[in-house]
Amino acid sequence: MWYERSWQWAKEHLTVTVPGVVLIFFATYVLMLAVNAGEVGASWVQTFGSLVGLGIAIWLPWQDSKRRHKEELARERGYARRLFYAAYEICGQIAGLFDELELIRNYDREVSSAIFERILSRLNSSFDDDPHPDRVALVHELRQNLPGLLGYLKHGARDENSGGKKIFQLRGYYRQVCNNCWSHLAQLEADLPPAERTMRPVDF
Rank of each mutant, 00 (worst) to 15 (best):
R122A: 01
A87R: 01
L101K: 15
A87N: 06
L83D: 02
L103C: 08
A74I: 12
L83Y: 03
Y85F: 15
K66H: 11
E117T: 11
R75E: 13
L97F: 09
I94Y: 00
R77P: 03
D134R: 06
S121V: 02
L123H: 01
H132T: 10
D128T: 10
L73H: 14
S113L: 07
H132S: 12
R75K: 15
R81V: 14
E110L: 12
R82G: 06
F84C: 09
H69W: 11
G78I: 02
Q93A: 09
L120S: 04
V111K: 01
I104T: 03
I104Y: 01
H69M: 12
G55P: 07
D129V: 05
R109I: 08
N106F: 09
I115F: 04
I90F: 00
P131N: 06
E100D: 13
L123W: 00
A86P: 00
I119A: 02
A74F: 12
K70S: 14
D99F: 09
W59H: 13
G78P: 04
W62D: 08
C91R: 13
F98Y: 14
W62N: 13
F84K: 01
I115C: 04
W62A: 14
R82D: 06
G96Y: 07
S126Y: 03
G92D: 05
R118H: 07
R81G: 03
A57K: 06
L103G: 06
S126L: 03
P61N: 13
E117S: 09
R67G: 04
R105E: 15
R82P: 00
Y79H: 12
